[in-house]
């Protein structure tokens, strides 16, 4: 029997079957929860990344972590969690530092410096993996688009004998809490240095330190998320929530809060879409995010075709 490309929509199979038995519900619940956590933490960090015009820095770091992962594996000869994690974070930070150094020191255009660095890092990573890691189970497919469906298969963490759940899920939860804490504590500093660098300097804020902190946060988020959604889809989760929210709201706290409902929509919508069409879940989440973005673009109050005339009027008034 030949299956059509787009399957018939079966509401029962899509919406009910995943939750029919307790085991199924637990399995699929973990997937949706993981998706939600990834979207939320990336969305929160991403809001600041986008206003700082570093949207593609996320892309660069997410590719740049590859040689770190590969080296950590080669040195440790195991897929131990901590070395891989640190290797990846270090490589990601190194990649962003290289980009900034090139942008400052050479006559290259900034975009060329960025494109050049992260692709070289990525090439180095792929080469290292194929040299030494043929038994590394670092699947380049998985790296590029991730496999969130395998999250429940990961080994469980247990503390003091209590089984507390799947390891990637727990680490993602920890990172999400860290991101929320860091953004709450340093909210004012981040806000000022993102929107008005001169004011931040006059206030005596340590801009380089703040920038480094944000890059560190970004690298941490990317490293813990890439396992689930792959390097490229991390980028979309960084950009989509805040850009979509910015069509409706202009205030930063509101945009940050918007990541919560948007993450719910992305993760649930993506899960059901993937269930319906039987395709990559992470990919489907981004497709949902893309659709949300297009809808927001059309109906949003802050620009977009429907609202263009007032928008233009405001621009004229401002100038």
């Amino acid at each position: 029997m030949k299956e059509p490309f787009i399957r018939d929509f079966d509401p029962i199979d899509t919406f009910v079957t995943p939750w029919a038995t307790a085991a199924d519900a637990a399995w699929n619940g973990q997937i949706v929860l993981m998706g939600f956590l990834v979207c939320l933490s990336c969305g929160l960090v991403g809001a600041f990344i986008v206003v700082r015009r570093l949207a593609l820095m996320g892309d660069a770091i997410s590719h740049g972590i590859l040689p770190g992962l590969a080296l950590a594996f080669i040195v440790m000869q195991s897929r131990a969690l901590l070395p891989m994690f640190f290797g990846a974070c270090l490589a990601g930070l190194l990649c962003s530092a290289c980009i900034e150094w090139l942008q400052r020191k050479s006559i290259l255009k900034p975009d060329a410096a960025l494109g050049l660095t992260f692709t070289s890092f990525f090439a180095l990573g792929v080469l290292l993996i194929s040299l030494h890691g043929s038994n590394a189970h670092i699947d380049p497919d998985c790296l590029l688009y991730g496999e969130i469906g395998l999250i429940p298969l990961a080994e469980n963490l247990s503390i003091a004998g209590f089984d507390i759940g799947s390891r990637p899920l727990i680490s993602m939860l920890a990172i999400t809490i860290l991101v929320i804490l860091a953004l709450t504590i340093f909210y004012r500093q981040l806000l000022v240095s993102s929107f008005d660098l001169t004011l931040a300097k006059t206030l005596g804020l340590r801009i380089n330190l703040i920038h480094f902190g944000l890059m560190l946060l970004l690298a941490l988020t990317i490293v813990s998320a890439f396992e689930a959604v792959g390097v490229i889809l991390v980028v979309s989760m960084l950009i989509f929530p805040s850009v979509t929210a910015a069509f409706f709201f202009t205030r930063m706290p509101v945009i940050l809060l918007c990541s919560i409902p948007l993450s719910v929509i992305y993760s649930c919508g993506g899960f059901f879409l993937a269930r319906w069409l039987d395709c990559s879940i992470a990919g489907a989440m981004v497709v949902v995010a893309f659709l949300c973005f297009v809808c927001a673009w059309v109906i949003g109050s802050q620009g977009g075709p429907l609202q263009r005339a007032p928008h233009l009027r405001r621009v004229v008034a401002e100038s």
Partner: peptide
């Protein structure tokens, strides 16, 4: 039509289209 900056626009299209492709 929007105030989205070049780098974000590139990232949006890049990942959106790529995800669509991956799904397909």
């Amino acid at each position: 039509t929007t105030r989205i900056r070049q780098d974000s626009a590139l990232g949006l299209v890049l990942s959106g289209f790529y995800a669509l492709g991956i799904c397909m």
